[in-house]
Amino acid sequence: MTRRILLVLAAVAVLLGAVPSAAVARSTVTRSARSEVRLDATVNGTRLRDPIAIHPDRLVTVRVAVRNDSPETLHVRSVRLSGAVLGLDFFVFEAATRLSIPAGQTRQWTMEIQVDSLEGQATGLLPLSLTLVDEDRDTIGTVEGTADVHASVISAYGLFGLGTLVVTVLLWAAVLVALARRRLPVNRAMRGLRFVPAGFGLGLSTVIGLSVLRITAPTTASEFGYLIGLAAGAFVLGYLTPTPRPGPPRPPAAVAAPASDPERTQPAGVGAPERVPPQERRW
């Protein structure tokens, strides 16, 4: 049994060792909804391939360069800064530009974005996206990087991670107590499934914890790696747990004898109460 558990832990460790390497390798990614548009940007004087320090009490300086190789004039409505983890946007800031870029030309401009409300929204290392939006609210292009948000832990993102950690601890406590009391299913697959929610919660807590502690920023690969990897590891761990054996049989409960009726148990005519006829009332 000990050998099986060690094999499971070794497999999970190898899987988790490969995930952070993919997360650290995050670099600037430029996506353009229009192949004729080239987008480059810096935030606070730093290219997005490096972590960018963002403070809620300071203005964020954004410098954008756009090359329009399309045959039509490009109309830029706004520039949007956003940070999302697990598909959830934890902060979004948008500044209007109202800029037109003729065909075949390049435009560069610098703008400042106020992010004071970031104090109660997020903290730690988060994915950062800088997006150009046109007049129809469609995406022109996006540059992705990493933001190092210096804000309070008591924020929406920090509280989300804390709540996830509390739920994860409760899930593991429940399944381990059931294991100790031999209340898990006899079927191995069903026992493994009982461990999956706890493993999933552990993966979610790991993703957010590494982000809040500024160890690594979440990426799509790391999110799925931790969630699926730890959930699968928990399933294998539950699958290899010993089959619960039934405990000693309990003695049958004593059945209380029904209460006896003195009128039925006594012989006829012995000890029977005498009934006194009611007295007649005279008027």
Rank of each mutant, 00 (worst) to 15 (best):
M1A: 03
R4Y: 15
I5E: 12
L7Q: 11
V12Y: 03
V14E: 09
A18W: 10
V19F: 01
S21L: 11
S21D: 14
A23Q: 03
A23P: 00
V24H: 00
V24T: 11
S27P: 12
T28S: 14
V29M: 10
T30P: 00
A33E: 15
A33R: 15
T46V: 10
T46W: 11
L48K: 09
R49Y: 08
D50T: 07
I52D: 07
I52S: 06
I52L: 04
A53W: 01
D57F: 06
T61W: 08
V62M: 10
V62G: 09
V64L: 02
T73V: 09
H75D: 02
V76S: 07
S78W: 08
G83Q: 06
V85W: 04
D89P: 01
D89C: 09
T97F: 12
R98G: 03
L99V: 11
I101T: 04
R107G: 07
Q108Y: 05
Q108E: 15
T110D: 14
M111C: 02
I113P: 05
Q121G: 05
A122C: 00
T123R: 05
L126Y: 02
S129K: 07
D134K: 03
D138F: 13
D138H: 13
I140E: 04
I140R: 02
T146P: 12
T146Q: 03
D148Q: 01
A151V: 12
V153K: 05
L159Y: 01
G161E: 05
L162H: 03
L162G: 08
G163N: 11
T164V: 10
V167Q: 01
T168F: 06
V169G: 06
L171W: 03
V175N: 07
V177H: 11
A180E: 13
R181L: 09
R183P: 10
L184I: 11
A189P: 08
A189N: 08
M190I: 12
L193N: 11
L193E: 08
L193T: 04
R194M: 14
F195V: 08
F195E: 09
G199D: 05
G201E: 03
G203R: 00
L204D: 02
L210S: 05
L210G: 06
S211Q: 03
S211T: 10
T216I: 13
P218C: 01
E223I: 13
G225C: 06
G225P: 04
L227R: 09
I228M: 04
G229E: 01
F235I: 05
V236R: 04
G238C: 03
Y239F: 13
Y239R: 12
P242Y: 02
T243V: 14
R245C: 00
P246D: 15
G247N: 07
R250F: 15
P251W: 02
P251Y: 00
A254T: 09
V255L: 13
A256E: 15
A257F: 14
P258D: 13
P258E: 02
P262S: 08
P262C: 07
R264H: 04
P267N: 00
A272Q: 13
P273Q: 05
E274K: 15
R275T: 06
P278L: 15
P278C: 13
Q279P: 11
Q279F: 04
Q279V: 14
E280D: 14
R281W: 06
W283D: 01
